[in-house]
């Protein structure tokens, strides 16, 4: 069978021609392609193009294929910037748990922007959004993480937001968090889980045989 060099897209069938359009317009079109593999490929190739941010987010909001969703979230992470941050923060309010968790993971990978939105997110009237903010803090490399978590323990009036903060501190907290942790059960005296979680966190922070102030 002879090898045929294809110099012109005009000679290709429609579907193949569309696949070969690797320019911006072609990639944006392929984000809507009915085939998941084409959407994944388009998301990977358009990553880094800040002008495609809204198109990627719009596609992400209706994406049902896990691999394509992952590729689109990765494209947002690679591209970064203010627009990505704004759209990801909107996704925290999605009814789709997978999308919310994807947004959390991407925001964790953008620590440089956290200072701009974290105070607002931790003051959001929706306690679920404040829990997602604490979830972002879990793996966020930012110098204010301990301060934000202690603020939650001292000020947030929702038990589940505080419980989420205790869980993060169980993994990553230091001795400076102990006073705020040890005061928390007094704020929620009727919640046995809070008492248990705080005891667990304090034990982990102090280590074997440790005690406060040593």
């Amino acid at each position: 069978m002879p090898l045929v060099r294809r110099d012109a897209d005009d000679n290709l069938p429609g579907e193949e021609r569309r696949e070969n359009q690797r320019d911006r317009a072609g990639l944006l079109e392929q984000l809507q392609d009915p085939r998941p593999a084409a959407r994944r490929r388009a998301a990977r190739e358009i990553a880094g193009d800040a002008t495609a941010m809204d198109a990627i987010c719009n596609a992400l909001e209706i994406e049902t294929d896990a691999g394509s969703r992952h590729a689109m979230l990765t494209a947002l992470l690679v591209t970064g910037g203010e627009r990505a941050k704004a759209r990801l923060l909107q996704l925290l309010r999605s009814e789709d748990a997978g999308l919310r968790n994807g947004a959390i993971e991407v925001l964790q990978g953008m620590p440089g922007l956290a200072g701009e939105y974290m105070d607002g997110l931790l003051s959001d009237p929706d306690s679920d959004v404040r829990i997602f903010a604490v979830n972002i803090l879990e793996s966020l490399r930012h110098q204010r993480v301990p301060e934000w978590l202690q603020q939650v323990l001292q000020n947030d009036d929702h038990v589940n937001v505080c419980a989420a903060a205790v869980d993060v501190l169980t993994e990553a907290g230091g001795p400076e968090c102990l006073p705020a942790l040890e005061a928390l059960p007094q704020r929620f005296p009727d919640e046995p889980f809070v008492d248990f979680a705080v005891r667990t966190a304090v034990r982990r922070i102090q280590g074997p045989g440790g005690s406060h102030g040593q």
Partner: peptide, 10 residues
Amino acid sequence: AQTVRLYHRE
């Protein structure tokens, strides 16, 4: 959440 897993386990 590890505290939740531990709590439920206990």
